[in-house]
């Protein structure tokens, strides 16, 4: 068992719609799908990103594609079009997610 940052075992891309963010989390190797499913829960992600996400986190699982999709509300200081955040689209937030640690 080793503790690693998610960035070593998975990749991610952020998208935005209004004040809601989504990010994919895709293991490089399908064998890590189960560990991520078990450890990278909605609650853990909400806690890890507490400085950014003020709303809810919902995880959607795609076992067919060995991928996850996280949807987070109240994540962009009021929404892309009127947000005054430095990264108004929240596009960089996938990098914050990938800093999370996991045991594999």
């Amino acid at each position: 068992m080793a503790t690693v940052k998610l960035l070593h075992i998975a990749h991610s891309r952020t998208g935005d719609k209004g004040d809601t963010l989504n990010f994919s989390l895709i293991p490089y190797n399908e064998k890590d799908y189960a560990s991520i499913a078990e450890q990278v829960t909605s609650e853990k992600v909400k806690d890890h990103l507490q400085a950014i996400i003020k709303g809810e986190v919902i995880r959607y699982d795609l076992p067919n594609l060995h991928a996850f999709n996280f949807v987070c509300t109240k994540a962009l200081l009021g929404g892309v079009t009127t947000s005054i955040a430095w990264d108004a689209h929240g596009k960089s937030i996938s990098s914050a997610l990938l800093e999370m640690e996991i045991n594999i």
Binding site: R13, G15, K17, N22, S24, L65, A67
Partner: peptide, 9 residues
């Protein structure tokens, strides 16, 4: 896969 989930809820 990254693009499949891009801006998807």
């Amino acid at each position: 896969k990254e693009q499949l989930l891009y801006e998807v809820h």
